[in-house]
Design a protein around this nucleic acid. Structure first.
Ligand SMILES: [Mn+2]
Ligand SMILES: [Mn+2]
Ligand SMILES: [Zn+2]
Ligand SMILES: [Zn+2]
Lengths: 128, 128
DNA sequence: TTATTATTGCGAATATGTTGCAATAATATG
DNA sequence: CATATTATTGCAACATATTCGCAATAATAA
């Protein structure tokens, strides 16, 4: 199943690159000018995750958010990094902080999903 | 709104105390012998969370899991601790490991939701 | 240009969690 | 114990997120 280039894939990646944040399917759909079906966006996002182009974060709202992998911008991020979800502006950003943990004997690690939530700097300064 | 004692609340707490793990609504319902309505279980769980008797974890499967607070058993746990979700046996346990993080300036923390996932010791040893 | 098949749109299905409302039952009070 | 108050429950309906089957479309290889 060789991948093909399509306007949909381009548009989705474009939005994610531009915002530089983690976005949910509906947020992505809202930002795209052309009309793309909900299911299609999910399929594109899932494929990007399989291919290691995006990574998936599940926030405490139970929703999936998607962000570009690793060297998002200037600062490359550790494989397992924290995420911050602002409850005011509803955005999620990848923090360049590594998650440090240790597991008891005989535990096998497969994935890490760490989300801190609160108010981001933009929103906390607005309040002043 | 003074709280009342009911068989439902007792049954739910009982299951959570017995397993000592974090459980989802459907897992709890399955473990209870009497029939309790889905919505009722959710309401009971939400009330326990409000009252600080349970805490809520959202796993990467997007589902909510509920566990007894802090001094679950012998070892008291830090306020912000890691959780481990086994993808084999589908259980979640509270790890007595504190989550260490630091936020950039002007960020306000409100909540922490950290879930590691993989294979727990019981399931990894079964494979041997 | 044509054939192959990855990708899409659509509608329906699944799953998790919440809510309105009337019925039930726990508790307080005399 | 009898009665009033109201927290709690069951039920059905709702909301939302995500997936799936299937036929139509379109990107690429030949
Ligand atoms: Mn990230
Ligand atoms: Mn816990
Ligand atoms: Zn914000
Ligand atoms: Zn296990």
């Amino acid at each position: 199943m060789k991948r093909r280039n399509t306007p949909t894939k381009e548009a989705v990646l474009d939005v994610l690159i531009t915002t530089g944040k983690a976005m949910s399917q509906d947020a992505i759909e809202r930002e795209i000018d052309i009309n793309i079906n909900r299911a299609t966006i999910y399929r594109v996002l899932n494929r990007f995750c399989e291919d290691g182009i995006l990574h998936r974060i599940v926030a405490e709202d139970g929703k999936q958010y998607f962000a570009m992998c690793i060297n998002c911008d200037e600062n490359p991020k550790p494989l397992y990094h924290f995420h911050f979800r602002c409850i005011k502006c509803e955005t999620i950003e990848c923090l360049p902080k590594e998650v440090n943990f240790s597991l008891p004997k005989d535990y096998l690690i497969e994935n890490v999903n760490c989300v801190l939530s609160g108010v981001c700097k933009d929103c906390s300064q607005l309040a002043i």
